[in-house]
Design a protein around this nucleic acid. Structure first.
Lengths: 233, 233
DNA sequence: TTTTGTGAACTAGTTCACAGCT
DNA sequence: AGCTGTGAACTAGTTCACAAAA
């Protein structure tokens, strides 16, 4: 294997990509997108695909695909492109989907229940193991697909016993920071937060926010500003 | 050699910021965040706040707050900061929240129903007017909070009649592009898409994607890569 | 050929640092 | 004094363009 030590993204300390310098959120998200594209192609029976074709088909940029992938290894074949099955396998390893990822949802409201039953999660190897709530009326019940709702008091114990990797927060804003703290104290290192507002987590813990109000309001912003003025080249 | 090309406020060559050059998605989202912070401060009775205090309290960057705001006008008072009520008012106008924004949700599955009833939307002046689905078993029913589920065949007519501004997509991936096309053809200029996969919309239409699978997978990515290697600075 | 992998160039976004206003 | 508004400096992210490989 060629020593891919030619600067660029990786290897400032002679380390391999894995564990080397920080990969951006944007890149990580794109890797997930690439995996989904490959799943589509694989299902359609496509054996190999070039970065160009991939880019055209899914409205991406070919150079960016190549750069993103090349950071993790030399997965392509010059003159051919990428073998779909093989690249899928690599991406699944890179994304940590080669082992089952165990997820808990905190907050058994409408949104929490919908997330716990969301079919897209199960699809790519995530397992929704449990839900948590403080409401005694909800504890002991189950989501439509059968995810148990457990008392929040049991959180730490269940997280340890069930080996939970990721916690999804779908609680009211006022409770979010407290729940995040409990999760972090229980050893959780990755949080997907749907509660509005700013959370603080210690370094080493990855927090990803999905802020529904912000998403809608930013759309509203573009609507408000586009109304007067159309395309201009 | 570019002439007096002062950035930010100064960039307007006769034009006002509104309708001038393109504001980034990132900036738009931050404006929404600022509004939420100000709501919190206002509720706490705070009259004025400096960019520094705002930044410290909500883990933001003071210079960025100033720059974001200054682009839209001179809202601050030197030596004092920003008057909370006044800045809220400005932000609500900038975000287009001074008039009611009318929203429809397409897809009356678990997620669609949860979104239609999401209290965070109503809070800041959004009105969820209707839901749409193709399933005859769902059409005619209502969400928990009373949003009617209408046959997708009625979409165009209802969008016109009810003056819908934003469409939220919560349909299966396979249907998403078709629904987006119908929405665009019906005059919708802003889409919030929760369906997985890549959608294409014509220029002039704003599409914002919330991809739950990508969010979870990117967390999984960081988990997978952080396991070996801790903080190192 | 075709297509990857990648330095270099470019573009976008953030933060600094300070003049000038209150 | 304190703080905004903003050029300049810096950092991050994207795209170009081409040498090397199949």
């Amino acid at each position: 294997m060629t020593s891919r030590n030619k600067s660029g993204l990786g290897t400032r300390t002679g380390k391999l990509a894995k564990g080397g310098d920080q990969v951006s959120e944007l890149t990580a998200s794109r890797l997930s997108v690439y995996l989904r594209c490959l799943n589509t192609l694989d299902a359609a029976g496509v054996k190999a695909v070039s970065s160009r074709t991939l880019a055209e088909q899914f409205h991406l940029n070919a150079a960016q695909i190549r750069k993103d992938l090349a950071y993790f290894g030399e997965f392509g074949v010059r003159g051919v492109g990428y073998y779909v099955r093989e690249l899928k396998r690599h991406l699944r390893v890179i994304l940590g989907l080669d082992r089952t990822v165990r997820v808990a949802v905190v907050g058994a409201g409408n949104l929490g229940l919908a997330l716990a039953d969301y079919p897209g999660f199960r699809q790519e190897g995530f397992e929704i193991v449990a839900m948590f709530d403080t409401d005694r009326g909800k504890v002991g019940r189950k989501s439509r697909t059968g995810v148990r709702i457990i008392d929040m008091a049991e959180f730490r114990k269940v997280v340890k016993r069930e080996n939970i990797n990721i916690v999804v927060l779908a609680v009211p804003a006022a409770a979010a920071q407290d729940v995040a703290n409990v999760a972090v104290a229980s050893g959780i290192r990755a949080l997907l937060n749907f509660s509005p507002g700013t959370l603080k987590v210690p370094p080493g813990v990855k927090l990803k926010n999905v802020d529904l109000t912000v998403s809608l309001e930013s759309l509203s912003f573009f609507l408000a500003r586009g109304e007067s003025d159309e395309e201009e080249a």
